[in-house]
Deep mutational scan, measured.
Amino acid sequence: MAAGGDHGSPDSYRSPLASRYASPEMCFVFSDRYKFRTWRQLWLWLAEAEQTLGLPITDEQIQEMKSNLENIDFKMAAEEEKRLRHDVMAHVHTFGHCCPKAAGIIHLGATSCYVGDNTDLIILRNALDLLLPKLARVISRLADFAKERASLPTLGFTHFQPAQLTTVGKRCCLWIQDLCMDLQNLKRVRDDLRFRGVKGTTGTQASFLQLFEGDDHKVEQLDKMVTEKAGFKRAFIITGQTYTRKVDIEVLSVLASLGASVHKICTDIRLLANLKEMEEPFEKQQIGSSAMPYKRNPMRSERCCSLARHLMTLVMDPLQTASVQWFERTLDDSANRRICLAEAFLTADTILNTLQNISEGLVVYPKVIERRIRQELPFMATENIIMAMVKAGGSRQDCHEKIRVLSQQAASVVKQEGGDNDLIERIQVDAYFSPIHSQLDHLLDPSSFTGRASQQVQRFLEEEVYPLLKPYESVMKVKAELCL
């Protein structure tokens, strides 16, 4: 049975990233139509530049190519590739079939990587351009969430054990800070992308030097003109047959890092959902379990974690691919890159769409948070109580021993009897502590235990987050809708 299948058929496997999760716009960027249309555009740009620099290419040939950029006979191309065992030459023939007058000058002087690699770089750039505003929107939604809850005390956790208090907004800023680093890295790697350009079979530009009869300047002009037509500021000066596969490492490393950030955020949300302090959106008709109707599973956060793990592992592909590119190139890269580049971007696209949807509907339960604080705060307040007693004339050592005994009794009630923490009640009825009984409410005010959390939130948002989001103001209103 021949390899390949009808990918629109229910009898043929289709990647869930495309069929179930990723956005239509990201799927289109990695589609065959987008790819092969870009090949034709690159052939047109090459012909236009070659004509401008004096090669015998007519206006009629150029116009014929322009008129057929979208006229792609995919069936013919597939048949040609089956016959020739070469995808680029299959599309040269297919393009030439609908451009008979231009057929002889299509791909003039070029090698397969002229269309293959340059198209990949265009796709990487455009895919990054799709991700950047999506990530900015996630940051914006979380920034709104953090600002609104900047002063809401909550129990902090280290080692997932109760620690000092923080605020809900401050905790959210930990998430935002990681995503801001990801946004900066995505922008950097996007701006650092260079075009492969017009380089020939081993990167020496020998074929173009021959076409222009040894004119170095025209060869350099050709490279520059096509690079500018493709919208790049610069091209690699040095290439082998391909652009260095280190570029793929750079791009997928940034995406993998984004995956790590999203995994951490969504894990926190899942843990908070278990504590009943916070939940992701839950639709009115949504079913959490087929057997347990009360369940409210954090399905979206779980999906993000599941896909983020996949995204983090994909960076190993370009690392290994770059390491086995012998001399000017081997074909070890080809099949692998067809999979890992598309999957990385479709996965990143999915987790950003999902995280935006989550961040637009996060639900906080202040009463649950308050109750958990009441359970733990008495123990945390013991040092403040000791200091207040010393100020009232008591002995630190005597007070410490009193607190120690009462704390152990209260802990026994919590752990052995399943009761509430009654340390404060014990202190309130103990005559030894009568000098500070009137101060206990103040000493137990949760806001006095959150330090500068709310001020940190305000400063972080104003100095770091809002300036970073400013270039994306025009796209901030787009909502994230999930079908599944």
Score class of each variant (00 low, 15 high):
His7Arg: 14
Ser9Asp: 12
Ser12Leu: 14
Arg20Val: 05
Cys27Pro: 15
Phe28Arg: 10
Phe36Lys: 09
Phe36Asp: 11
Glu48Lys: 02
Ala49Pro: 06
Thr52Glu: 06
Leu53Asn: 06
Gly54Asp: 05
Leu55Ile: 10
Pro56Cys: 06
Pro56Leu: 09
Ile57Val: 05
Ile57Arg: 01
Thr58Val: 13
Glu60Cys: 11
Glu60Leu: 07
Ile62Asp: 00
Ile62Cys: 05
Glu64Asn: 10
Ser67Arg: 15
Asn71Gly: 08
Asp73Glu: 05
Met76Gly: 11
Ala77Arg: 02
Arg83Leu: 10
Ala90Val: 09
His91Asn: 06
Val92Gly: 12
His93Pro: 02
Cys98Ser: 10
Ala102Leu: 09
Leu108Gln: 04
Gly109Gln: 02
Ala110Trp: 02
Thr111Ala: 00
Ser112Ile: 02
Thr119Met: 06
Thr119Ile: 13
Asp120Leu: 12
Leu121Asp: 00
Leu121Ser: 12
Ile123Asn: 09
Arg125Ser: 08
Pro133Trp: 11
Arg137Gly: 12
Leu142Gly: 03
Ala143Thr: 08
Asp144Ser: 12
Glu148Arg: 04
Glu148His: 10
Arg149Thr: 10
Gly156Asp: 00
Pro162Arg: 03
Gln164Cys: 04
Cys173Ser: 12
Trp175Met: 02
Met181Ser: 13
Leu186Pro: 08
Arg190Val: 10
Thr202Asn: 11
Gly203Asp: 00
Thr204Gln: 13
Gln205Ala: 14
Ala206Val: 12
Ser207Asp: 02
Ser207Lys: 05
Leu209Trp: 09
Gly214Phe: 15
Val219Gly: 08
Lys229Arg: 11
Phe232Ala: 03
Gln241Pro: 00
Thr244Val: 07
Thr244Gly: 13
Val247Arg: 02
Val247Ile: 11
Asp248Ile: 09
Ile249Met: 13
Ser253Gly: 09
Val254Thr: 12
Leu258His: 04
Ser261Cys: 09
Asp268Thr: 08
Arg270Glu: 00
Ala273Asn: 11
Leu275Met: 04
Gly288Ser: 07
Ala291Trp: 11
Pro293Gly: 09
Lys295Ile: 02
Pro298His: 03
Glu302Ile: 00
Glu302Pro: 01
Cys305Ala: 05
Thr313Ala: 13
Asp317Ser: 07
Gln325Cys: 11
Trp326Leu: 09
Leu331Ile: 01
Ser334Ala: 06
Asn336Trp: 02
Cys340Thr: 12
Thr347Ala: 15
Thr347Tyr: 04
Ala348Asp: 04
Asp349Ser: 09
Asn353Val: 10
Thr354Phe: 08
Leu355Trp: 13
Glu360Gly: 09
Val363Gln: 09
Val364Asn: 11
Val368Ile: 06
Leu377Ser: 03
Thr382Cys: 10
Ile386Val: 12
Val390Met: 11
Ala392Glu: 10
Ala392Ile: 09
Gly393His: 12
Arg396Ser: 05
Val405Phe: 11
Gln408Glu: 14
Gln409Tyr: 13
Val414Thr: 15
Val414Cys: 00
Glu417Ala: 11
Asp420Arg: 04
Asn421Arg: 05
Ile424Val: 13
Ile427Phe: 12
Asp430Glu: 15
Phe449Leu: 06
Thr450Ile: 14
Gln458Arg: 13
Arg459Trp: 13
Phe460Met: 11
Phe460Glu: 07
Glu462Lys: 11
Glu463Ile: 06
Tyr466Phe: 12
Pro471Tyr: 14
Pro471Thr: 06
Tyr472His: 13
Met476Ile: 12
Met476Gln: 15
Lys477Asp: 06
Lys479Val: 14
Glu481Thr: 15
Leu482Arg: 11
